[in-house]
Amino acid sequence: NITNLCPFDEVFNATRFASVYAWNRKRISNCVADYSVLYNLAPFFTFKCYGVSPTKLNDLCFTNVYADSFVIRGDEVRQIAPGQTGNIADYNYKLPDDFTGCVIAWNSNKLDSKVSGNYNYLYRLFRKSNLKPFERDISTEIYQAGNKPCNGVAGFNCYFPLRSYSFRPTYGVGHQPYRVVVLSFELLHAPATVCGPKKST
Rank of each mutant, 00 (worst) to 15 (best):
L188K: 15
N87G: 08
A22P: 02
C49S: 00
K48F: 02
D90F: 03
Y178W: 13
Y39C: 11
R78N: 13
C150S: 05
K114R: 12
D98Y: 06
L38N: 03
P54K: 15
C102L: 00
V77K: 02
G83C: 08
K26Q: 10
K48S: 07
V153Y: 09
A105S: 13
F185V: 05
G152V: 06
R78L: 07
N87K: 11
N24A: 10
A22V: 03
T3F: 05
Y143S: 07
N120E: 14
A81M: 04
Q176D: 07
G152S: 10
R27D: 08
D98M: 05
A105E: 02
L60C: 09
P133Y: 01
F160M: 12
V153F: 10
T15Q: 10
N1C: 01
I72C: 06
A105R: 01
F126C: 12
G86Q: 03
P133N: 03
V32T: 15
G74P: 04
T100R: 11
K26F: 06
E10W: 04
V52N: 04
R27Y: 09
E186V: 01
Y119P: 13
V103P: 00
L95V: 10
F134E: 07
P43A: 08
C195W: 05
A154Q: 14
Q84A: 15
V11N: 03
C195A: 08
C158L: 03
V37T: 13
L187D: 11
N107C: 06
C6W: 03
G146F: 04
Y171H: 14
P169G: 11
Y91M: 07
F62Q: 07
Q79C: 02
T140L: 09
F45K: 15
R16V: 13
R163L: 07
C31L: 04
D112H: 01
F99E: 00
V77S: 02
D137C: 03
K26C: 07
T63W: 06
Y39L: 14
K199H: 15
F185A: 03
P161L: 02
Q176N: 05
C61T: 07
V77H: 01
A22S: 11
Q144C: 06
S108N: 05
Y178D: 05
A105Y: 11
S29Q: 11
A18T: 04
R136A: 05
E135Y: 01
F47E: 03
H189F: 07
N64Q: 12
L38W: 06
G86L: 06
Y119Q: 15
S108P: 05
T15C: 01
L60W: 07
T15V: 09
G196E: 11
K110R: 11
F47L: 13
P191M: 06
K48R: 13
K128T: 12
S53Y: 07
Y50E: 01
S116D: 15
G83L: 08
G146E: 08
P149V: 10
G101V: 00
A18D: 07
G152R: 08
G117N: 12
R78P: 14
I138H: 07
R127W: 01
Y93S: 01
V153K: 14
R168I: 10
R124P: 02
K148L: 12
L162D: 06
F156A: 15
L5S: 10
F134S: 07
S36M: 06
R16L: 08
C158N: 04
K94A: 05
L162V: 07
P169V: 02
A33F: 15
N147I: 11
V180A: 01
I138P: 07
A145F: 11
F160C: 09
Q84D: 02
Y21H: 07
C49P: 00
R163H: 10
N58I: 05
I104P: 00
G117C: 06
V71T: 06
P133F: 02
S139Y: 00
D137R: 01
F12A: 04
S164E: 13
Y50I: 02
A154E: 15
A145Y: 10
D137P: 02
R16Y: 12
G155K: 09
V181A: 01
E186L: 00
H175K: 14
F134I: 03
N147M: 12
A42C: 01
S184H: 13
T193W: 09
N147T: 14
F62H: 08
V11C: 03
E10N: 06
Y165P: 05
N92T: 03
F167T: 05
C49D: 00
V180H: 00
V182Y: 00
F70L: 01
N151M: 11
Q176V: 03
A192F: 13
N58H: 12
P43M: 06
R127D: 05
L183F: 06
Q79D: 03
V77F: 02
F185R: 00
S19V: 01
A67E: 02
D75A: 08
I104N: 00
Y39M: 15
L122R: 15
Y35D: 06
S139K: 08
N24M: 05
G155Y: 04
R136G: 02
D98S: 09
N92D: 02
L41F: 14
L125Y: 15
D59E: 15
R127S: 05
N157W: 07
E10H: 06
L162N: 05
A67S: 02
P133M: 02
N64Y: 13
G117A: 09
Y165T: 06
L188D: 15
K26L: 08
V37P: 09
R136W: 03
C61Y: 07
C49L: 00
G74D: 05
C6G: 04
I2R: 13
G146L: 04
V37W: 14
C61V: 10
R124I: 04
V20E: 04
K132Q: 13
Y35T: 08
F8L: 12
Y21E: 05
W23D: 04
P133D: 06
H189S: 14
G83W: 01
R163T: 09
N13T: 07
D112F: 00
Y66K: 06
S129R: 12
A89H: 02
V173L: 14
L60P: 07
N4I: 08
D34P: 06
Y159R: 10
N58F: 07
S116T: 13
F70G: 02
V52A: 06
T100N: 08
D34W: 06
T85S: 13
H175A: 14
F62C: 09
D9I: 10
P43Q: 09
K94P: 00
C6Q: 03
W106K: 00
W106R: 01
A18G: 08
C102G: 00
Y123D: 05
P43I: 04
G51E: 02
N24K: 15
R179Q: 04
T100D: 02
I142T: 08
K56P: 06
L188M: 13
V52P: 05
C61E: 10
L183V: 02
V115Y: 11
D68P: 00
N130I: 12
K199Y: 15
V71N: 01
C150P: 04
P169M: 05
N58G: 12
V32A: 07
Y50G: 00
K94Q: 01
E76W: 11
S164T: 13
A22I: 02
A67P: 00
E141L: 07
I142A: 07
T201F: 14
N24D: 13
A42L: 13
C61Q: 10
C150E: 05
V32Y: 11
V182K: 00
K132F: 07
L187G: 14
R16P: 06
T85N: 10
R168D: 15
C31G: 04
